[in-house]
Structure formats: C-alpha cells, structure tokens
C-alpha cells in the first residue's frame, strides 16, 4: 500500500484530503506544519508528500528544501497545494524541488489523477 504524507495547517483540508486518499486505497499520514512533517518522515516511509505552502512554524517552500536534503527523499514526489493565481509560487516551488502542484479546492477526481501520475501503482 502506498503512503502519503499530507501537510496542511487546516484541519478541514487534512481531514478531507486524507479521506479521499484512504478511500482510494492509500495510506494517509498528516502533519500540521513543516516541522511536524519532518518529524513524521523520520519514522514513516512516504511515497508521496502533499504540502500546503503557507503554514506557521515552517512553510511549504522551506519544507520542500529540507525534504530534498534527506537521502531517503531525494526522489520522492512532492506536490504542493496552491491557489489558482500562484503561478510564480509554482515556479519557485518547482525550483526548490517540488514535483507538481494541486489547485485548491481539491476535487477528488483531480487529486487521484495527479497522484496516479506521480506515484506508480497508486
């Protein structure tokens, strides 16, 4: 079973997105900010990380940079949650090591289509 780490400071988003993931046969772990996420990655092997950009403590960009420093996560796909208008942010995040993006609000079908595009066998 493929595992996803979902990082977002919003309880609602964490609940709704992980619900979609679990219902589609994925294992979902959540974290509420970047720092929390790095802690979770220690004892957990994620096949995909989905992270919000704006979060307290450690934001998404900083998290992506930290993730890429971890040997186990050099190649792991990381998707960021963005709003429609954040084209510049997307480029910046891609440069920092993000694989792609999801546009909020996330629709179940879109989410799974993107997940299958970056995680083989999902």
């Amino acid at each position: 079973m493929k595992s996803v780490l979902l990082v977002d400071d919003s309880d609602t988003i964490r609940a709704s997105v992980s619900d979609i993931l679990t219902r589609n046969g994925l294992k979902a772990e959540t974290a509420k900010d970047g720092k929390d996420a790095l802690g979770k990655l220690n004892g957990f092997k994620a096949d995909l990380i989905i992270t919000d950009l704006n979060m307290p403590v450690m934001d998404g960009l900083a998290l992506i940079k930290e993730i890429r420093k971890l040997p186990a996560y050099r190649f792991t796909p990381v998707l960021m949650l963005t709003t429609e208008s954040q084209q510049a942010k997307r480029d910046e995040a891609r440069a920092a090591g993000a694989t792609g993006w999801l546009v909020k609000p996330v629709k179940p079908d879109d989410l799974m289509a993107v997940v299958r595009k970056v995680v083989p066998g999902a």
């Binding site: 890429r68 190649f75 792991t76 796909p77 090591g97 993000a98 595009k117 970056v118």
Partner: peptide
C-alpha cells in the same frame, strides 16, 4: 528532473 520527484517514464 529525478531530484524533484519526476519519473518521466511514468509521466
């Protein structure tokens, strides 16, 4: 591209 999580063959 592998270092940003891409798998071009999968894409």
């Amino acid at each position: 591209c592998f270092f940003v999580g891409d798998d071009p063959l999968l894409t």
